[in-house]
Design a binder for these strands. Structure first.
Lengths: 188, 188
DNA sequence: CTTGGCTATGCAACGAGTTGCATAGAAGGA
DNA sequence: TCCTTCTATGCAACTCGTTGCATAGCCAAG
């Protein structure tokens, strides 16, 4: 139930509606956890019925009403309890790696464009993360000193940056390998 | 349906039973995709009924019979088709990162032991991957030259090694941050 | 003026993945 | 002898996650 905990963290950082949460999951929280709006609405409803969250209905002019959720006592307790218990280290899941191994049974060069496309996505993400880092943590407009919450957000963001850099370097390695195999072909 | 494709790749590399596949998913294939035996048995059954796989029942002495699966024509075609269509780049899912951000709403130092434990798991995995690399690709017992399939397996393994190295370095960064916050505490 | 995009919420159906349990013979250690 | 582990397969129930669709008013561009 990691989505539940991710929602608790995000709502503690700032209360908001399901729609707003869905957008945060495309941005900062999305650096390390993803969710669609349908998933979020369903879980929010359940968490509210369990007493972990409180709702406020907000009328807005020229926009649909929204429901603003915030964490209440029991929700905080659930998060705290989760922080104190250990979780299993996850293994990575990389569909592209399955494809790369599968390329041995087809023409490896068909993957070159696909890998180049993925590489570009990771370059864009890296640029986006670095812009966020400059804006919120290391640039002149950033608060000094950072408080504990900001320090923790920053170290998570550094993880995202390290991940993207590592991935780009690996995809370069993959491209080199695919091109090398393409020049002296031997499809199985 | 990435599991289906991962199974096709694994069975093309070498035919085997559901049990054997489950163990491969704890080893080499598991570097980038995971699955439990229940999932594997269910999908194997479905794939066989769809004509992607063939089964051979093998009697063994002093062991239960097993069903050896292998890929047949339509299965190869499904894999080839999948290789030619593009997939979405995945974002990372890291539960520990959720915890780290959540630590801002509790005592950050409670996470230190947890992060140290994860760090050790990644160190062990790295050692395991490096041993495999030496055994299969770079050591004296490795075949030279490597064929295309081995080159592709090697580049995927290099990705796993890069991932573990990056993760260990990041967890060191996280530990430094948590310890720094612990000495001058400010729980929210 | 119509089309498409943005805010905002939600249902229904399906597929993916996890957890607990069950069976069953053989081998090996306490 | 009993207990555990390993090989080998599988069912049932559940939660998690995705995809398609629906509603509905507002705004901006063509």
């Amino acid at each position: 139930m990691a989505l539940e905990h991710a929602i608790l963290v995000s709502l503690l950082e700032k209360p908001g509606s399901g729609y707003e949460l869905a957008r945060r999951f495309e941005r900062s929280i999305g650096y390390f956890w993803t969710a669609t709006h349908q998933q979020i609405y369903r879980v929010l409803k359940r968490m509210e019925s369990e007493g972990l969250l409180a709702v406020r209905e907000l009328s807005q002019q020229s926009r649909p009403d929204k429901k603003e959720y915030s964490v209440v006592g029991p929700g905080r307790a659930v998060l705290s309890q989760w922080l104190h218990q250990s979780i299993q280290p996850e293994s990575m899941r990389h569909e592209l790696a399955v494809k790369i191994r599968g390329a041995a049974f087809d023409d490896p060069s068909v993957l070159i464009r696909e890998v180049e496309r993925h590489r570009q996505v990771h370059i864009d993400r890296l640029a986006h993360y670095q812009a966020g880092e400059l804006r919120d943590f290391t640039g002149p407009a950033a608060p000094t000193p950072l408080d504990a919450g900001q320090e923790l957000q920053h170290v998570v963001l550094r993880g995202g940056i390290a991940y993207e850099r590592m991935t780009i370097a690996w995809l370069d390695d993959v491209l080199g390998t695919l091109r090398r195999l393409g020049t002296s072909p031997s499809p199985a």
